[in-house]
Simulated scan of single mutants.
Amino acid sequence: MTTLSDLAPDYDAVLSDVWGVVHNGVSAHPDAVEALRQFRKGGRRVVLITNAPRAVAPIVDMLDDMRVPRDAYDAVISSGEVTRAMIAPYRGRVIHHIGPPSIDDSLYEGLGVIRGPAEEAEAVVVTDLDTDDDTPDMYEARIAVWLGRRLPLICANPDRVVEHGGRIIYCGGALADLYEAHGGRIRMAGKPYRQIYDEALRLADAAAGRPLARSRILAIGDSVRTDAIGAANAGLDLLFITGSIHAQELDAFGAPDPEAIRALVSPSGARLKGFMPRLAW
């Protein structure tokens, strides 16, 4: 296992995942928060990069509510923020929203889209499943309608699953995967796609006040599908957090097998620099 303090001398900035690394959806991980604060000492920079399907401002509010101090990070970029550019062309037109009815309202703020039924929509926008108890198969009937109308699906949260307290729940990415498997067209801009990384890297450069060498930026995350593949696509090294969505399969808090962790991450192409169950300094 590797701690962030072991790696810190080799990096000028980190792009850290939020859900599963900084908090578990219910409360912050104090050791992770302190690790980011320590990393920032000496002028290093921290950009939080999250697949949360909403704009940045409510994410900062959520971090405040969890008592994550603002001196733990320099900037935040979200999947919701970069996905807004995909929704903007539908101004004045009907889109069909899938997800909690109001929590993700900031995604649409100022875009001028009309939320309506699938039968009238020109696109489906998925933030998450409607409730935390839902599973993707529960949407088969609705998917048939979307397919029948050849609606594109814009997914504002590419995560398949996420840790929420002591549970693993499905996210919007799982529904997008099912729609694509049925032949539907999907679009995503969050991790692991380049749009969100390009913006995160721009924010890191801005926070540092100079262009940073990509070899001096470390990605931190808990998901192979999003964080590891995203780091590989962006040319960044990876610190992998094993104690979240992969905790059970990796025995993260017991006796994890380093070879099993490397075998899990390796297909992503990420340059694995270390792993630990929870981020700590």
Rank of each mutant, 00 (worst) to 15 (best):
G20Y: 07
L239A: 02
L239N: 02
D74T: 09
D237G: 04
N157E: 09
D71R: 03
S27P: 00
I154P: 14
M86H: 09
D130K: 11
A213P: 03
R67C: 10
Y108N: 04
A144V: 08
G20S: 09
V18Y: 01
W19D: 15
N157V: 07
P136Q: 04
I217C: 01
A255Q: 15
V26P: 10
M86G: 02
D17C: 08
Y73V: 00
L151W: 03
A189V: 11
I59S: 05
L36Y: 00
E163V: 12
I87D: 01
G80W: 06
G254F: 07
G42Y: 05
A156S: 13
V94G: 05
H97P: 08
R93E: 14
L250R: 06
G116M: 00
L111D: 12
A232G: 13
L264I: 12
D6A: 14
A247H: 10
F275G: 02
I241D: 04
L250Q: 06
D205M: 05
L63R: 08
V82S: 12
G183N: 08
N233Y: 01
T226H: 14
V22F: 03
D65L: 13
S78W: 10
I59K: 11
V56M: 03
P277A: 13
G243D: 05
I168P: 11
A181W: 03
R84Q: 15
T2L: 14
R67L: 12
E259T: 09
H23A: 07
V14P: 02
G112A: 11
D134H: 13
G20Q: 10
D61A: 13
W281A: 15
A208C: 06
L153W: 11
V60S: 10
M276H: 11
L4G: 09
S268D: 13
H246I: 03
D74Y: 08
Y170G: 02
I245R: 07
I95H: 07
T127E: 09
A232T: 13
E34Q: 14
H164R: 15
D105F: 02
V265T: 12
L15H: 07
R44C: 01
W19K: 04
F240W: 04
S79C: 12
Y193R: 15
A141V: 06
Q195G: 03
E122W: 01
E122H: 10
R67M: 12
E81D: 14
P117C: 06
L178W: 04
D6M: 13
E180P: 10
G235Y: 11
S244Y: 08
S79L: 09
R44Y: 02
Y73R: 01
R84I: 05
I95A: 09
D237H: 11
A189F: 07
I229R: 15
I143T: 03
P101T: 11
